[in-house]
Protein backbone atom coordinates (compact mmCIF):
# COMPACT_ATOMS: atom_id res chain seq x y z
CA UNK A 1 0.00 0.00 0.00
CA UNK A 2 2.79 2.39 0.98
CA UNK A 3 4.61 1.44 -2.21
CA UNK A 4 1.56 2.36 -4.33
CA UNK A 5 1.19 5.74 -2.64
CA UNK A 6 4.90 6.49 -3.07
CA UNK A 7 4.72 5.52 -6.75
CA UNK A 8 1.69 7.82 -7.27
CA UNK A 9 3.50 10.66 -5.60
CA UNK A 10 6.53 10.19 -7.82
CA UNK A 11 4.47 10.07 -11.01
CA UNK A 12 2.54 13.15 -9.90
CA UNK A 13 5.82 14.98 -9.30
CA UNK A 14 7.08 13.82 -12.70
CA UNK A 15 3.84 14.96 -14.29
CA UNK A 16 4.18 18.39 -12.73
CA UNK A 17 7.78 18.72 -13.95
CA UNK A 18 6.77 17.63 -17.44
CA UNK A 19 3.82 20.02 -17.52
CA UNK A 20 5.95 22.90 -16.26
CA UNK A 21 8.50 22.28 -19.00
CA UNK A 22 5.77 22.24 -21.68
CA UNK A 23 4.18 25.37 -20.21
CA UNK A 24 7.46 27.27 -20.22
CA UNK A 25 8.10 26.25 -23.86
CA UNK A 26 4.66 27.18 -25.18
CA UNK A 27 3.40 30.07 -23.07
CA UNK A 28 4.73 32.79 -25.43
CA UNK A 29 3.02 31.26 -28.46
CA UNK A 30 -0.13 30.74 -26.39
CA UNK A 31 -0.06 34.36 -25.21
CA UNK A 32 0.27 35.65 -28.77
CA UNK A 33 -2.72 33.64 -29.96
CA UNK A 34 -4.69 34.70 -26.86
CA UNK A 35 -3.87 38.35 -27.60
CA UNK A 36 -5.07 37.98 -31.20
CA UNK A 37 -8.24 36.28 -30.01
CA UNK A 38 -9.12 38.75 -27.26
CA UNK A 39 -7.63 41.97 -28.63
CA UNK A 40 -5.99 43.20 -25.42
CA UNK A 41 -3.22 42.31 -22.97
CA UNK A 42 -5.32 41.95 -19.83
CA UNK A 43 -7.84 39.52 -21.35
CA UNK A 44 -5.00 37.67 -23.08
CA UNK A 45 -3.32 37.04 -19.71
CA UNK A 46 -6.60 35.85 -18.20
CA UNK A 47 -7.22 33.53 -21.14
CA UNK A 48 -3.72 32.01 -21.00
CA UNK A 49 -4.02 31.46 -17.25
CA UNK A 50 -7.43 29.82 -17.59
CA UNK A 51 -6.13 27.65 -20.44
CA UNK A 52 -3.09 26.36 -18.54
CA UNK A 53 -5.15 25.81 -15.39
CA UNK A 54 -7.61 23.65 -17.32
CA UNK A 55 -4.76 21.91 -19.15
CA UNK A 56 -3.00 21.04 -15.88
CA UNK A 57 -6.22 19.76 -14.32
CA UNK A 58 -6.77 17.41 -17.28
CA UNK A 59 -3.11 16.70 -18.09
CA UNK A 60 -3.69 12.99 -17.42
CA UNK A 61 -5.97 12.98 -20.49
CA UNK A 62 -3.36 14.48 -22.81
CA UNK A 63 -2.19 12.04 -25.49
CA UNK A 64 1.56 12.59 -25.77
CA UNK A 65 1.49 11.26 -29.37
CA UNK A 66 -0.21 14.49 -30.46
CA UNK A 67 1.34 17.98 -30.46
CA UNK A 68 0.90 19.70 -27.11
CA UNK A 69 -0.01 23.00 -28.78
CA UNK A 70 -2.94 21.44 -30.68
CA UNK A 71 -4.35 20.11 -27.41
CA UNK A 72 -3.67 23.43 -25.69
CA UNK A 73 -5.32 25.44 -28.48
CA UNK A 74 -8.39 23.26 -28.26
CA UNK A 75 -8.67 24.17 -24.59
CA UNK A 76 -7.95 27.83 -25.32
CA UNK A 77 -10.49 28.20 -28.13
CA UNK A 78 -13.16 26.52 -26.00
CA UNK A 79 -12.31 28.77 -23.06
CA UNK A 80 -12.41 31.82 -25.31
CA UNK A 81 -15.73 30.98 -26.94
CA UNK A 82 -17.18 30.10 -23.49
CA UNK A 83 -16.01 33.45 -22.17
CA UNK A 84 -17.42 35.39 -25.13
CA UNK A 85 -20.78 33.64 -24.75
CA UNK A 86 -20.79 34.10 -20.98
CA UNK A 87 -20.17 37.78 -21.30
CA UNK A 88 -22.96 37.87 -23.87
CA UNK A 89 -20.97 39.81 -26.33
CA UNK A 90 -19.59 38.91 -29.69
CA UNK A 91 -17.17 41.77 -29.88
CA UNK A 92 -18.25 43.63 -32.96
CA UNK A 93 -16.46 46.94 -33.03
CA UNK A 94 -16.97 49.65 -35.55
CA UNK A 95 -14.53 52.45 -36.15
CA UNK A 96 -17.55 54.72 -36.26
CA UNK A 97 -18.28 53.87 -32.65
CA UNK A 98 -16.60 55.36 -29.60
CA UNK A 99 -12.80 54.87 -29.46
CA UNK A 100 -11.05 52.76 -26.79
CA UNK A 101 -10.10 55.81 -24.72
CA UNK A 102 -13.67 57.08 -24.61
CA UNK A 103 -12.97 59.63 -27.33
CA UNK A 104 -15.09 59.79 -30.43
CA UNK A 105 -12.59 58.20 -32.83
CA UNK A 106 -10.04 55.38 -33.10
CA UNK A 107 -6.43 56.36 -33.65
CA UNK A 108 -5.62 54.59 -36.91
CA UNK A 109 -2.08 55.29 -38.13
CA UNK A 110 -1.46 56.79 -41.55
CA UNK A 111 0.76 54.16 -43.17
CA UNK A 112 1.66 56.28 -46.16
CA UNK A 113 3.62 58.63 -43.90
CA UNK A 114 5.77 55.91 -42.25
CA UNK A 115 8.21 54.46 -44.78
CA UNK A 116 10.35 52.54 -42.32
CA UNK A 117 9.63 48.79 -42.53
CA UNK A 118 9.64 48.12 -38.77
CA UNK A 119 7.43 51.12 -38.14
CA UNK A 120 5.15 50.02 -40.93
CA UNK A 121 4.75 46.53 -39.47
CA UNK A 122 3.89 48.04 -36.12
CA UNK A 123 1.48 50.45 -37.76
CA UNK A 124 -0.14 47.64 -39.76
CA UNK A 125 -0.72 45.65 -36.63
CA UNK A 126 -3.30 47.90 -35.00
CA UNK A 127 -5.82 48.10 -37.86
CA UNK A 128 -5.44 44.36 -38.44
CA UNK A 129 -6.08 43.66 -34.75
CA UNK A 130 -9.12 45.94 -34.84
CA UNK A 131 -10.39 44.07 -37.88
CA UNK A 132 -9.80 40.72 -36.13
CA UNK A 133 -11.65 41.92 -33.04
CA UNK A 134 -14.60 42.93 -35.20
CA UNK A 135 -15.13 39.32 -36.35
CA UNK A 136 -17.34 36.68 -34.76
CA UNK A 137 -15.39 34.47 -32.34
CA UNK A 138 -15.66 31.26 -34.41
CA UNK A 139 -14.52 32.92 -37.66
CA UNK A 140 -11.66 34.75 -35.90
CA UNK A 141 -10.44 31.51 -34.31
CA UNK A 142 -10.47 29.59 -37.60
CA UNK A 143 -8.69 32.37 -39.51
CA UNK A 144 -6.02 32.83 -36.82
CA UNK A 145 -5.30 29.11 -36.58
CA UNK A 146 -4.93 28.89 -40.36
CA UNK A 147 -3.04 32.08 -41.15
CA UNK A 148 -1.14 32.98 -37.99
CA UNK A 149 -0.52 29.48 -36.60
CA UNK A 150 -0.26 27.87 -40.04
CA UNK A 151 -2.39 24.86 -39.13
CA UNK A 152 -3.97 22.53 -41.70
CA UNK A 153 -7.78 22.44 -41.98
CA UNK A 154 -7.94 18.94 -40.53
CA UNK A 155 -5.97 20.04 -37.48
CA UNK A 156 -8.19 23.11 -37.07
CA UNK A 157 -11.28 20.90 -37.31
CA UNK A 158 -9.81 18.76 -34.52
CA UNK A 159 -9.07 21.82 -32.38
CA UNK A 160 -12.51 23.36 -32.96
CA UNK A 161 -14.33 20.02 -32.75
CA UNK A 162 -16.06 20.49 -36.07
CA UNK A 163 -15.89 19.19 -39.65
CA UNK A 164 -13.31 20.17 -42.27
CA UNK A 165 -16.17 21.55 -44.40
CA UNK A 166 -17.21 23.90 -41.58
CA UNK A 167 -13.59 25.02 -41.14
CA UNK A 168 -13.33 25.72 -44.85
CA UNK A 169 -16.49 27.80 -44.75
CA UNK A 170 -15.49 29.69 -41.56
CA UNK A 171 -12.10 30.61 -42.96
CA UNK A 172 -13.55 31.80 -46.25
CA UNK A 173 -16.32 33.86 -44.63
CA UNK A 174 -13.94 35.13 -41.96
CA UNK A 175 -11.43 36.40 -44.51
CA UNK A 176 -14.21 38.13 -46.42
CA UNK A 177 -15.42 39.83 -43.20
CA UNK A 178 -11.88 40.92 -42.49
CA UNK A 179 -11.30 42.28 -45.97
CA UNK A 180 -14.59 44.19 -45.89
CA UNK A 181 -13.63 45.77 -42.57
CA UNK A 182 -10.14 46.77 -43.75
CA UNK A 183 -11.40 48.20 -47.06
CA UNK A 184 -13.98 50.24 -45.16
CA UNK A 185 -11.81 51.45 -42.28
CA UNK A 186 -8.14 51.06 -43.23
CA UNK A 187 -7.85 50.87 -47.04
CA UNK A 188 -4.21 51.98 -46.76
CA UNK A 189 -3.33 48.54 -45.27
CA UNK A 190 -4.65 46.69 -48.30
CA UNK A 191 -3.08 49.25 -50.66
CA UNK A 192 0.35 48.99 -49.05
CA UNK A 193 0.44 45.19 -49.14
CA UNK A 194 -0.94 45.02 -52.69
CA UNK A 195 1.88 47.28 -53.89
CA UNK A 196 4.44 45.03 -52.27
CA UNK A 197 3.13 41.79 -53.74
Amino acid sequence: MIGVIAKDRISSREGQARFESLMRCTHRQAYSLAYRLTGNASEAEDLVQETFLRAYRFFHKYDAQLPFTSWLYRIMTNAHIDSVRRKGRLRVTSLDQMGPDGAGTWDVPDLDSSPDRAMMEEALDEPVQLALTSMTAEFRTAVLLADVEGMAYEEIAEVMKTSVGTVRSRIHRGRKQLRRFLIQHSPQVIRRISNEL
Binding site: Y31, S32, A44, E121, V128, L178, V189
Partner: peptide, 11 residues
Protein backbone atom coordinates in the same frame (compact mmCIF):
# COMPACT_ATOMS: atom_id res chain seq x y z
CA UNK B 1 -0.29 37.71 -46.61
CA UNK B 2 -1.30 40.45 -44.13
CA UNK B 3 -2.40 37.83 -41.60
CA UNK B 4 0.60 35.55 -42.12
CA UNK B 5 2.91 38.48 -41.40
CA UNK B 6 1.27 39.75 -38.21
CA UNK B 7 4.05 39.85 -35.61
CA UNK B 8 3.98 37.61 -32.56
CA UNK B 9 2.83 39.51 -29.47
CA UNK B 10 5.17 38.98 -26.54
CA UNK B 11 3.91 38.73 -22.96
Amino acid sequence: SILTDVPQVTP
